[in-house]
């Protein structure tokens, strides 16, 4: 399904959370789609099942998935409402990147174009990057 970067400094459960968020936001995983079971994912990725359980719990707390007892975890359709912390983090990341962009001489117009282009791609509904 996907690979984890075991050499990364980022904890594995954080990588899992981010990966699933990316899938859900980009519609790679549809609303109400079932996530792989902890058991299967653990075996596929050779990752501790407790770590996967933790990632699923975190995704549930953040509102990206919901779980049904005895059935498994599913993508929550209302996931697009992201927490304010997340918004803050993304904004600060963007600021950093934009400052860098201006520093290397990318113009404001070019950035505006990029914004329009990205917006179209997401709005167009095809989840391809």
């Amino acid at each position: 399904m996907f690979d984890l970067d075991l050499r990364s400094r980022k904890p594995i459960y954080e990588q899992l959370v981010d990966k699933f968020k990316e899938f859900i936001i980009n519609d790679v995983m549809q609303t109400d789609e079932k996530l792989p079971s902890v058991r299967i994912l653990a075996q596929q990725l050779t990752v501790n099942p407790n770590t996967i359980q933790k990632a699923y719990r975190e995704l549930e707390v953040q509102g990206f998935i919901y779980s049904v007892k005895g059935k498994g975890s599913f993508v929550d359709g209302s996931a697009k409402k992201v927490s304010s912390d997340e918004v803050k983090r993304i904004k600060s990341d963007l600021e950093k990147l934009l400052a860098e962009a201006f520093f290397v001489g990318i113009t404001k117009n070019e950035i505006n174009e990029l914004i329009d282009l990205t917006y179209e791609q997401i709005g167009g509904g095809n989840g391809n990057d």
Binding site: R39, A42, Q43, T46, V47, P49
Partner: peptide, 14 residues
């Protein structure tokens, strides 16, 4: 190593 780890993880999960 990967095979063995995978076996261990299966038993932990199952």
């Amino acid at each position: 190593r990967q095979k063995i780890k995978n076996l261990i993880i299966q038993d932990v999960a199952d």
